[in-house]
């Protein structure tokens, strides 16, 4: 086994690399690679993505393993599982980390099972113990508990990390770029992506956002969600929602914040017409400042927020948004 520390890049559909990858590189460099005395390496998997490899060097990767293969297009689970598993077997890194994105949640446990690794998901803290075992903290019990977990003798030690948990610190290196040299047999890829629909959004991505404005069932229509979007845009915030709002068709599923949906931890979370369920709080309860606007004084959210107004959103939001707008434009 080598003592390399691998960060597997999370790519967006256009091939660009997600923030969480740079966060993981920055944190692993300081908290893990330094202590292990191991090389910090990037891993880049995908189709037509090679040109992005040097970007991983900007955050300290000394080596980047690249597998650029047509079969890895559109995040095919089977192809990714084969690619990363084979790469791990070939180079035997000691630690492998990726982002806890929709995609990371999908193929990372499968790779761990295939290579016999120990694995945890959605870590919010990472470092190593004195005897060089990976140690992580994460949320459990609908985010009401934070266990600390330490790995045993199963290698590699693998974890996904929650986006927006670590600071990005640049450390410019010119990485050695290595062809992963993994073949994927097309016959082993039995699943097919038969349609991929995406909508471009100008707003920041939820998991990465510094501010989030979310709406709940109380918005009562898709059209009314413009109240949420308008405030979000003025604050340069991401727009989120509860499952009740998504379920009712007021907004798309990828806006859902919570136990099932996205986990966010912004400095400001504005909850509009949201009751404050355990499941919603599981995804945003660690936000620094929580603001609630709700017409029900008994809504549970008023027991667990910082600031709030008991009022009808349709009365309160227009002047509130206007005041924010004035303030922001004054700088």
């Amino acid at each position: 086994m080598s003592n390399e520390v691998w960060i597997v890049a999370d790519s967006k559909l256009d091939g660009s690399i997600r923030q969480v990858t740079f966060e993981a590189l920055s944190e692993a460099r300081e908290k893990i690679a330094g202590k292990l005395g191991g090389k910090l390496c990037g891993v880049l998997l995908g189709s037509g993505i090679s040109s992005h490899a040097p970007e991983l060097g900007e955050y300290g990767a000394e080596k980047v393993y690249v597998i650029d293969n047509e079969l890895l297009k559109n995040f095919n689970t089977e192809a990714y599982t084969i690619a990363l598993s084979e790469l791990i077997k070939k180079h035997e890194p000691s630690i492998v980390i990726a982002g806890n994105t929709v995609f990371g949640q999908d193929y990372f446990p499968r790779v761990a099972a295939r290579v016999g690794a120990g694995v945890t998901m959605d870590a919010i803290k990472i470092d190593v113990t004195d005897d060089n075992k990976l140690r992580i903290k994460r949320y459990s019990h609908s985010s009401k508990a934070i266990p600390t977990q330490v790995f045993h003798e199963n290698y590699p030690m693998m974890t996904t990390v929650r986006p927006n948990s670590f600071k990005i610190i640049e450390d410019s290196k010119t990485p050695e770029i290595i062809d992963g040299g993994v073949e994927i047999n097309p016959a082993d890829v039995k699943m097919k992506i038969i349609e991929l629909k995406t909508k471009e959004s100008e707003r920041p991505e939820l998991a990465e956002a510094e501010r989030v404005v979310s709406g709940g069932r109380g918005l009562s229509s898709e059209d009314n969600f413009r109240y949420v979007y308008e405030l979000a845009d003025i604050l340069d915030a991401a727009a989120g929602a509860t499952r009740a709002a998504v379920d009712a068709g007021y907004c798309p599923y990828d806006m859902q914040v919570g136990q099932t949906g996205k986990a966010v931890s912004p400095s400001l979370y504005v909850a509009i017409a949201i009751s404050g369920s355990v499941q919603h709080f599981a995804g945003m309860g660690s936000s620094k400042v929580i603001v609630a606007i709700n017409k029900d004084p008994e809504a549970p959210i008023f027991q667990k927020c910082d600031y709030g107004i008991v009022g009808d959103l349709f009365d309160v939001l227009p002047p509130f948004t206007q005041n924010v707008k004035t303030l922001v434009s004054e700088g």
């Binding site: 508990a145 266990p147 600390t148 977990q149 004084p297 008023f302």
Partner: peptide, 18 residues
Amino acid sequence: RVNTIEIKIPQIERKLRI
């Protein structure tokens, strides 16, 4: 393969200025 060595309950004091 992974052991839990400690569990903490997150305590965030909220201002509750309503």
